[in-house]
Amino acid sequence: MSRKLRVLIAKPGLDGHDRGAKVLARAFRDEGYEVIYTGCHQTPEMIAAVAIQEDVDLVGLSCLSGAHNYLFPQVTRLLKEEGADDIVVMGGGIIPEQDHAALHEAGIAAIFGPGTPLDAITGWINDNVKPRD
């Protein structure tokens, strides 16, 4: 048997723009990953707890409300507190360039903006995220 990549797609915060998250969930399934989607309106606490219970390798956060500077680092902080900072966290949505540095600093490994082709995202994952041993 071999390890399968397990991914959590999560929507922190209150915005309901889930088009990207859902498209990504389907694309990930088609790429052969096992995908769990949280649905809209989740708190960082909920997301971190689920990431741990589901033993995922990657968390994809999607936020289009502008609250990413608060919400994304909260998720990485909570994972770290639980000793789960080996879970890779990436982000997407409307994230201005000027916010990227601070988010990377906070442990967001990659940020994908509007218009990113699906292949670019799965390509990055295949290169950078491996099922953890």
């Binding site: 209150l14 915005d15 409300s65 609250a67 608060y70």
Partner: peptide, 21 residues
């Protein structure tokens, strides 16, 4: 978003969202 969802600014759900959109 807090207003849109029927939460006040002092709700824990509203954290980080105030005035953003």
């Amino acid at each position: 978003f807090p207003t849109l969802m029927g939460y006040d600014t002092d709700s824990p759900r509203a954290k980080g969202e105030c005035g953003k959109c």
